[in-house]
C-alpha cells in the first residue's frame, strides 16, 4: 500500500467524521451528532450512486427512486408494526417489523429489484437519453407515492419511535451514529474492493472503451446492469437509515431534487473518488448549516459555490486537496 496524499486525506476525513461526534458527545451537543449522522447516511447514498456514476459512467438522475424505496421499506414495515396491523396474512402472518436488520434487508432487496427493472429498461439507451429516462422513472415513483393514500400520500408516514437494533439504544444519538458510521465504513470497504475486483476493472474498461470489453467476450450491458443494481441497493439502504434518522418518510425523498442533491455530494467531493461522497456530504451539510445562519437566501451562495467548483475545481474537494488522481485504485 502506497501512502499517497489522497489516501492520507481519506483517513483524515473518516477519522474526523468519527471524532467530531465523539467530541460533541462529551460536550453534550447532541445536535452535532445528528448532523454527523446525517452526513454519514447521505455519504452512504453517495457511495451507492458513485458506483454507477464514477465506476460505471452511468449518469443517473433517478437515484432518489432507490433512496425513497429504502425509506418507504422502513416506513411501511414500522408503521404496520407500530399499529399492529398485519402487512399480509399469507403464506404466513407478518405484522411488519421494527427491527433494523430486517428493515435493511427488505430495503436492499426492494431497491435492488427496482434497480434491476429500471436499469434493464434504461440501459437500452445512453447519453442524455439515459439521464432523462432515469429521471422519468424517478418521477413516476414520486407521483405514485404522492397519491398512495394508504401510506400517507404527500403527508408521508411518521414513526413514533426509532426502530430497534439488538443490543443498542437507537434513540441515543451517539449509538445511532455508530450504526450509520459502521455501515458507511463497510460500504466504503466494499466499494474499494469492488473497484479493484475483476468485475470492477471490466466495468471501468467498459466505461472507457466499449469495443475492447466486447472483444474479450464480456457484455457491457450486463456489467452495467449489475453495477446499477448494486448502486441502487446501497442507496436504498441509505434511504432506510435516513428515514430512521428522521423517524419519517415522505415523497420528498423521491423527488428529482433529492436525486440532484445526492449527485451534488458525489461531485462536490470528486467523481470516481472512493471517499468523494464522504467529503461532499460533509461539506454540503456544513455549508447548509453555516450559510443558513447568514441569510434567508443562502441557496444563492450554495449555487454560486457549486458553480465555481464545477467550473474551476474539477475533481471536487478531494481533487483540489490531493491533486490529480492516478487512474483508479
Amino acid at each position: 500500500m502506497m501512502l499517497t496524499r489522497e489516501r492520507l486525506l481519506n483517513w483524515a476525513m473518516i477519522a474526523a467524521l468519527l471524532i467530531v461526534p465523539l467530541a460533541a458527545w462529551s460536550l453534550d451537543e447532541p445536535f452535532i451528532i445528528t448532523l454527523a449522522t446525517k452526513a454519514a447516511i447521505l455519504a452512504l447514498a453517495g457511495v451507492g450512486l458513485n458506483i454507477a456514476l464514477g465506476l460505471g459512467g452511468m449518469i443517473s438522475l433517478g437515484h432518489a427512486a432507490f433512496f425513497g424505496i429504502g425509506g418507504y421499506a422502513m416506513g411501511i414495515l414500522a408503521a404496520h408494526a407500530q399499529n399492529y396491523e398485519p402487512l399480509f396474512a399469507w403464506p404466513f402472518l407478518f405484522e411488519g417489523s421494527n427491527q433494523m436488520p430486517l428493515i435493511w434487508l427488505v430495503a436492499v432487496v426492494f431497491s435492488a429489484l427496482a434497480a434491476l427493472v429500471i436499469g434493464a429498461l434504461s440501459l437500452r439507451t445512453s447519453g442524455v437519453y439515459f439521464i432523462m429516462i432515469t429521471l422519468a422513472f424517478g418521477q413516476m415513483l414520486y407521483y405514485f407515492a404522492i397519491s398512495w393514500s394508504a401510506y400517507g400520500g404527500e403527508d408521508g408516514l411518521s414513526i413514533w419511535v426509532r426502530n430497534e437494533f439488538p443490543g443498542l439504544n437507537t434513540l441515543d444519538p451517539i449509538q445511532f451514529f455508530a450504526i450509520a458510521y459502521v455501515i458507511l465504513c463497510l460500504a466504503l470497504v466494499f466499494a474499494a474492493r469492488l473497484a479493484r475486483s475483476p468485475f470492477g476493472l471490466a466495468l471501468a474498461a467498459a466505461r472507457q472503451n466499449e469495443d475492447r470489453v466486447e472483444a474479450v467476450g464480456l457484455t457491457p450491458f450486463t456489467l452495467r446492469l449489475i453495477a446499477f443494481v448494486i448502486s441502487g441497493a446501497i442507496t436504498g439502504l441509505a434511504g432506510a437509515l435516513f428515514a430512521d434518522l428522521n423517524r419519517f418518510v415522505s415523497p420528498t425523498m423521491l423527488s428529482w431534487h433529492t436525486s440532484g442533491e445526492i449527485m451534488i455530494f458525489v461531485i462536490l467531493g470528486g467523481v470516481g473518488r472512493l471517499y468523494g461522497p464522504v467529503a461532499g456530504a460533509a461539506l454540503y451539510i456544513m455549508l447548509e448549516h453555516l450559510l443558513g445562519g447568514i441569510s434567508d437566501y443562502w441557496q444563492i451562495f450554495l449555487g454560486l459555490l457549486l458553480l465555481l467548483i464545477v467550473l474551476f475545481a474539477r475533481g471536487g474537494l478531494i481533487g483540489a486537496l490531493a491533486g490529480r488522481e492516478k487512474a483508479h485504485g
Binding site: 447532541p30 445536535f31 445528528t34 448532523l35 435516513f242 428522521n246 423517524r247 419519517f248 415522505s250 420528498t252
Partner: peptide
C-alpha cells in the same frame, strides 16, 4: 428557524431545538 418546507429539515431543527 427556516424549514424550507422540507420535512426532514423540520425534523432536524426540532431535534436540535429540543436537544440543544
Amino acid at each position: 428557524e427556516d424549514d424550507q418546507r422540507k420535512p426532514d429539515a423540520a425534523v432536524q431543527i426540532a431535534d436540535r431545538m429540543i436537544q440543544s
